[in-house]
């Protein structure tokens, strides 16, 4: 288990955005309240060129968060050690303030399925995921943050709740939490519980970062609401409300706006960051 108290690296308790290469010029000219950037690790695992040059140019002005989408922490297979090595190479040269990954799986056998897939919550999966987190923290030599997933369905074989599962992982591995309140809202709606009740049992003292982002609305074949984690539009009002509820529990925290599909112009994304800044200010003064 990792002793996270030895790790002083922290993102600032301010708004950040998911970085997109097309915003490079506009972001630098007018960052607004944005103090840090999150990058998807896998997009920067080439050997050089523009992706690396942009990060080198941005690094003096923005704290960096490396967010992996390909490690398959929840996979039945052992972690891909080649991929872990690539991650270490990136983290070693960029020296980000934070590294995070998802409670999900995406690789099976030799295949990468390019989606964040769900797992049941049992003693067996708990042991395996904890081993994977230990391995990541050992190789990277730092604490990792684990993000709670967005769920569309539940597993009959699960024997514990998601928040029990996450709390046990924090206890066993010393990892931090990346609390995605959009995912909480999506899962709660899809699986019929209250998002506030979920947050009240979340390992809140381990939260080092919060995500907000957009979702799409659909319904299943029984007419029950089915929210989809699309990251393709503005963050919905109830998710902003949930952010304020979460901030009241955690205290000031780094808040990231995620927008990965149909990426808008910088002004639109900046307006979302402004809204995150308001939520942070309201919490401090309120």
């Amino acid at each position: 288990m990792l002793d996270a108290t030895q790790d002083a690296r922290r993102l600032p308790a301010a708004p950040g955005v998911g970085y997109k290469a097309q915003h490079f010029t506009d972001l630098r000219a007018d960052p607004g309240p944005v103090k840090w950037l999150e990058i998807h690790a896998e997009n920067y695992m080439g050997d050089g060129g523009r992706p690396h040059a942009q990060l080198r140019a941005l690094r003096p002005d923005f704290a960096m968060s490396v967010h992996g989408v390909g490690l398959s922490i929840g996979g039945e297979d052992p972690l891909n050690t080649d991929h872990l090595t690539r991650l270490k190479t990136l983290v070693d040269w960029l020296e980000p303030a934070s590294f995070s990954e998802h409670l999900a799986w995406s690789t099976h056998g030799a295949e990468f399925l390019d989606d964040l897939l769900p797992l049941p919550y049992t003693d067996a999966t708990l042991t395996r995921v904890a081993e994977h987190i230990d391995q990541v923290q050992d190789v990277l030599g730092r604490q990792m943050l684990l993000e709670n997933p967005s769920s569309y369905l539940a597993f009959e074989e699960s024997t514990m709740s998601e928040t029990e599962f996450l709390s046990e992982l924090v206890r066993k591995t010393g990892c931090g939490m990346l609390l995605d309140v959009n995912n909480v809202f999506i899962s709660a709606t899809n699986l019929g519980y209250t998002p506030q009740g979920y947050l009240d049992t979340y390992p809140l003292s381990a939260v080092r970062e919060i995500h907000v982002g957009g979702h799409a609305e659909d319904a299943d074949e029984h007419g029950s609401p089915l929210l989809i984690d699309s990251h393709g539009c503005e963050t919905a009002d109830p998710v902003w409300a949930l952010l304020e509820y979460a901030l009241a529990l955690t205290g000031p925290a780094p808040v990231l706006v995620e927008w990965d599909n149909d990426v808008p112009d910088w002004a639109t994304l900046r307006a979302e960051a402004d809204r995150a800044a308001q939520a942070l200010t309201a919490h401090v003064s309120g």
Binding site: F155, E156, N190, D220, E221, H222
Partner: peptide
């Protein structure tokens, strides 16, 4: 795989 009511989660 099931929904909140325990129905099979086909569309999900």
């Amino acid at each position: 795989l099931q929904d909140a009511q325990g129905n099979p989660a086909t569309k999900r």
